[in-house]
Computed example of a mutant assay.
Amino acid sequence: MLCEGGPHLLADLLAADLLDELCVTTTPVLVGPGPGRIVAGLPPLVPGAATGPTAGGEMPASADPVRPRLEHLLHAGGTLAARWALR
């Protein structure tokens, strides 16, 4: 199944271990006040773990990092299209 969505949907799919591959397009345009994250959402509830922002304003890490491997990388006009395998 091909699914297109935002960072919260991606976080939910990762948390449910339903993601086999990830296609990411990067274009040479800078916008906004700062970098966002490709995965956003609420961290899973772990007994004893902080669920809100730290004193510095950061949210706690939600899970162990996922380490995908690059399967394909295409370049055209400064745009990169990458396909990453997660399994």
Rank of each mutant, 00 (worst) to 15 (best):
L80M: 11
M59V: 12
P60E: 09
A55V: 06
A76L: 14
A85K: 15
D17E: 09
V31F: 04
L10H: 02
L45K: 03
D17Q: 08
H72C: 13
L70N: 09
A40N: 00
H8R: 15
P33M: 12
W84T: 15
P28R: 09
L2N: 03
G36T: 08
G56H: 13
A16P: 01
L2Y: 11
E21I: 02
H72R: 15
A61C: 00
L9V: 05
G78W: 07
P35M: 02
D17K: 04
G48P: 00
L45F: 02
V39A: 03
G6I: 06
W84V: 15
T54W: 09
H75P: 02
R69S: 05
H8G: 01
T51K: 01
P68H: 05
M1R: 14
D17Y: 06
G34R: 06
R83W: 07
C23E: 15
L73G: 00
A49S: 09
G5M: 10
L70F: 12
L74T: 11
T54Q: 02
G36Q: 08
L74H: 14
L19S: 00
G52F: 06
M59D: 02
A16N: 01
L70Y: 13
E58L: 07
L42K: 14
L70A: 12
D12N: 06
L30N: 05
G5P: 10
W84R: 11
L18T: 03
D20Q: 06
P35A: 00
A63N: 11
H75D: 08
A76S: 09
L2D: 11
D64M: 13
A55P: 01
L70P: 06
R37C: 04
V24S: 00
S62K: 02
L86H: 13
G34V: 05
V29E: 10
W84F: 15
T79E: 12
P35K: 04
T26F: 08
R69Q: 13
A61F: 06
A76T: 15
A15I: 02
T79K: 10
A81G: 03
L19T: 02
G57M: 13
G57A: 14
G6T: 08
L80D: 05
A82Q: 14
T79R: 12
P68F: 10
C23G: 10
P65Y: 15
G77S: 07
G77Y: 08
A15E: 04
A15R: 03
A82D: 09
D64A: 12
R67I: 12
A85N: 15
A50I: 06
L86K: 09
L30G: 00
E4G: 04
D12T: 12
A15W: 02
L19I: 03
A55H: 08
L10P: 02
A40G: 02
L22C: 00
L9F: 01
E4L: 11
L42P: 03
T51I: 07
D17L: 04
L42V: 11
D12H: 12
G57H: 14
G57N: 07
L22P: 02
I38C: 04
P68N: 07
H8T: 11
A49V: 05
L13D: 01
A16K: 03
G6Q: 06
A61Y: 10
G78D: 05
G52E: 09
E4S: 10
G52T: 13
E21A: 06
L22V: 06
G34A: 10
H8K: 14
H75A: 10
E21Q: 13
E71R: 15
T51S: 03
L14G: 01
A55W: 06
G41L: 05
T25S: 00
